[in-house]
Every structure is written in C-alpha cells, then in structure tokens.
Design a protein around this nucleic acid. Structure first.
Lengths: 195, 195
DNA sequence: GTCTATATGTTGATAGAC
DNA sequence: GTCTATCAACATATAGAC
C-alpha cells in the first residue's frame, strides 16, 4: 500500500486499537487483530509504536479515559443544579456509553501489563471516573462534615452500582436501565428498607 | 512418581486448579502451572480431565461457587434475625473470603470459554451469590409489594457494592472494610443525602 | 497414573528489503 | 510506512511407552 501521512496512519492505528482493546480487553486482542482492522501487517505497527503491544494499550486507554472524563463532566454540567439531577445525568450518560468493563480492566488487563504501566493507568482510570462524581457528593454534603469526608467513598459506591447495572444478567434486572437508575437514586436518597 | 489413588490424584489436581484459577483467572493459568503445582507433567492432567483446560475450569469453578454459597448461607443463618444484621453478616463474610474477582470472571473468563460452558457457569455463579441475598431482601420487604418485587435488583446492587469495596484502590477508601460495610448499610437504610 | 516426545498453532517481536 | 520472512517462546493437545 502507498505511504500515508504519518499522523493519519498513526491515528488510524490508535482508533482501531482503542475499539478492540475496549471491547475485548488486553489479552484477547492480538497485534494481528489490530493490523487487520487497519489494513496493514502487524509488523508495521512497530513503526508507530516501537515498544509494542503494551505501549499501544497504555496510550489508547489513557486517551479513552480522558475523553470519557470530558464527556462525563459535560453531562453533569448540563444537568440542573441539584445533586439528584446531576447524579441522574451522570448515570444515564455512563450507561449510554459502551460498557466500560472496569472489572476486567482492573482485574485482568492491569495484571497483564508491567507494574509501572498498570499503576499509571489505574490512577488515570480512577481519577477520570471518580473525580467528577466526588465533586457532586462534596457539593451535596456540604452541611454534613461527617458525610462530606466520605465523598470519595460514596462516589466509589455510585460507580460500583453503575458497573453493576451494566454487568448483571438481564434475568436479574427487570426493567430498563433508566428505571434502574431511578431505583438506584431512590436508594441513595432514602435508603431501601428504612431502619 | 509412583501410581496414586485415582481419587486422591484427581482431588489434588482440582484443588491446585481451583486455587490458581481463582487467583489469576482462566487465561493467565496454564496447564503447566497446574501440573507444576501438583507435581506432575501437564500432559498427565488429560488422564483425569480428558477434555482439557476448559473442562477443568468449569468443574472447579462450579465447585467453588457451590461451596461459596454454602458458606454465605451459613453466615447469614448464624446472624440475628433482622435484615440489617443479616446483610452485615453476609457482607463481612464475603469480604473475609479471598477476592471473588467477579468482574474478571464475567468479563474475561466467560468470554474465553465456549458459549455453552459460559452460560452454564453464569447461572451457577449468579444463583450462588444472589439467591441468599435475595432471600434477605424478600424477608425485609414483605410489607412493601412495590419494593418486594425488586428484591433481586436490590440484591444485585448489594453484590455490586461488595465487589466495589474489594476493587477500589486503597487511596479512595479510607477506613477498614468493616467500617465500609457500616457505611454501606447505613446508606441502604437511610440513604446518603436525603431528598 | 505419570512419563517422554511430538504435533500444531499462536503470539510478540526483530531484521531488512522496498 | 509497509512489506516479507523469520524467530523464540509458549500454548493446548495427542500418542504411546512404562
């Protein structure tokens, strides 16, 4: 194939790799898969990413998380100014995205790459996902110092619940995702059982 | 090595395989790893499990989940007879076990095995983890038909929260796991923010 | 029951031509 | 920039001796 612009070729590789890694995870995607998706041989990938698969994975994952964070912050900012509305906007936006596979990322992909790369990515992933949510809780809990200090914990719980909605089998979660978000937010507001 | 009792040899293989698969997941464990852990060559594993790695994985995972369910039910039964105490007992018991890696199991291991095996295991996993929890919610919500119908959803949310506690990085969850359980249960009782 | 030997496939990576 | 060719490493799995 004819020589292409350096930037364009590299960008096409990044896009294909991002789509594949995000969908199947680190180990299940081979360099040959990525090459095939772009239309080049896998050996040619080393021209753009001399250090190979891991370098490619780190770069696309970092990129993906940063874009995710931007989208999440935008979705939150565009909601009305109450904590309920902001959490609802965050949840609905996240559930409208392709599944994040956070569990696989943390429990399967990270252990498969070098410790340094994993540590770097873990920070990016959690700051991208959690910080926008932490801000909502901090704002909502201003009047309650004890709970305010637990904003990060609440944000983590919220994130876990979102992930759970994406993962639980359909047979266990009757109703649409939007309805589940309402149930979830109702729980965060008033509790389930009442003590 | 001398010939051993059929049952004993097979059992030793199962134990080693279970420990390895539970810790590292399906793809990251090789038959050589399992053979080495037992002290035999990997080819010998085919004597006990003629259909190879996948058969071994399915058998140990099903076994593990059934034992998990028994332990969970026992922990719940030994708690005092309120929903709060039962959920607390369930949570603390689960967090005292080795990490389940449910996300990895569902998002990485299952896609790596055959569809039939995956479907079979998914049912076992979710029934083992969720049914004991569903029973608690059903009991607690008897007086509220609308919420009672959502018992499975609540149980799923509870499970997601437990998983989340196991997964979130230490920097985001100050405090011990027991304290986190209290925070979580307080949220399930009364909500976080109050509407 | 466990061994050795081997078949067969896949993977990430490198070297060098064009 | 992309190619072909090749490599070493490692995987699952099978055949047959002991």
């Amino acid at each position: 194939m004819a020589k292409q612009s350096q930037v364009i070729a590299r960008e096409r590789v990044l896009e294909a790799a991002e789509r594949l890694f995000a969908g199947r995870g680190y180990a299940a995607v081979t360099l040959r898969d990525i090459g095939q998706a772009v239309g080049i041989k896998h050996a040619s990938l080393y021209y753009h990413f001399p250090r190979g698969k891991e370098e490619l994975y780190v770069e696309v994952t970092a990129r993906r998380m940063q874009r995710y964070r931007e989208g999440l912050e935008r979705a939150i900012a565009s909601a009305r100014n109450g904590w309920y509305e902001r959490l609802e906007a965050a949840a609905n936006w996240m559930l409208a995205q392709p599944t994040m596979y956070l569990g696989r990322m943390m429990q399967s992909d990270m252990p498969a790459i070098s410790d340094e790369a994993a540590e770097q990515l873990r920070k990016i992933v959690y700051s991208s996902l959690l910080q926008p949510l932490v801000a909502i809780f901090q704002n909502a809990l201003q009047d309650n110092p004890e709970k305010l200090a637990r904003s990060a914990t609440y944000a983590g719980m919220f994130l876990s619940l979102i992930e759970g909605i994406d993962n639980l089998p359909a047979s266990y979660v009757q109703g649409s995702k939007q309805e589940l978000v309402k149930i979830m937010l109702d729980m965060l507001s008033n509790g389930i059982v009442g003590k």
